[in-house]
């Protein structure tokens, strides 16, 4: 038997958050998301959480499980090897209801970094040619699912709401690394400050949390390297 201690907070009826224990006898083959769905169907229909694809691609269901951020859908309960599992909302953002948090700050940072390919030059009639090697350069960051597990793992994000955080910075790297993007200078200038790449303390908590195994810390390192490279080449 596994006890799921779940964070509950409904602003309409709760003055402060509470934790409720739910027991599930047989967890064989169950993911954390399956467990949450079982609790909702069989024990308490008022439990609220986000989920959709249940295959680790939509990015809806990131939660904190025993203090670590992960997707509920691709985490096997038995693999956690615990008889008590604490499920909480992602830390650092306002709670809307139970495990549902307000992602406005997260998407706000994302929107601030011009998160789209910019190419003002006339494109060819067909596709742009891009070598296999050039394509590989942004392969990892392009697989980000924007689940926020990384950004909400970062202690700096918790204390400084101006810091862009790993997800937004990884997105910047995705475009800097793409040979088709034409505003590299602007992008590097955007992150070359105390709220950008220099705010990262290289704690690796973001990379550890990423359910897609994207090395977000390395993405930030890569950006730093590009910033420095430009600075030195200008000096020469």
């Amino acid at each position: 038997m596994v006890t799921f201690r779940v964070f509950r907070f409904s602003p309409e009826k709760d003055k402060k958050p509470r934790y409720v224990d739910y027991n599930i006898e047989d967890t064989c083959g169950l993911t954390v998301l399956d467990a949450l769905k079982l609790i909702k169907t069989d024990m308490d229909p008022s439990l609220s959480f986000r989920h959709s694809c249940r295959s680790a691609i939509c990015g809806s269901c990131a939660v904190s499980v025993n203090g670590k951020n992960m997707l509920a859908c691709n985490t096997q309960v038995d693999a956690l090897g615990k008889s008590r599992i604490v499920i909480e909302p992602l830390p650092g953002y306002p709670v809307i209801n139970d495990l549902v948090v307000d992602f406005a700050p997260f998407f706000g940072q994302y929107r601030s970094i011009r998160p789209y390919l910019v190419s003002e030059s006339q494109p060819p009639e067909k596709e742009r040619i891009q070598s296999v090697e050039a394509r590989k350069r942004y392969d990892a960051p392009a697989q980000c699912i924007m689940c926020a597990a990384c950004t909400t793992s970062c202690p700096i994000v918790w204390t400084d709401d101006k810091y862009l955080g790993p997800a937004a910075l990884t997105k910047v790297w995705r475009f800097v690394a793409d040979s088709r993007d034409e505003i590299t200078d602007e992008r590097l200038a955007m992150v070359n400050n105390e709220y950008g790449v220099w705010r990262c303390h290289t704690m690796f908590r973001c990379a550890e949390a990423c359910p897609k195994e994207i090395d977000t810390t390395e993405a930030i390192e890569n950006l730093r390297r590009e910033v420095l490279k430009r600075a030195f080449s200008r000096r020469r």
């Binding site: 789209y116 390919l117 190419s119 494109p123 009639e125 067909k126 596709e127 742009r128 040619i129 891009q130 070598s131 296999v132 050039a134 394509r135 942004y138 392969d139 392009a142 475009f175 793409d178 088709r180 993007d181």
Partner: peptide
Amino acid sequence: NIYELEHMGVAFSRTPEGKI
């Protein structure tokens, strides 16, 4: 439409010649 998507930034895998 595919060329348009490529111009928008879709991360298509590439052939050895760099085409989609």
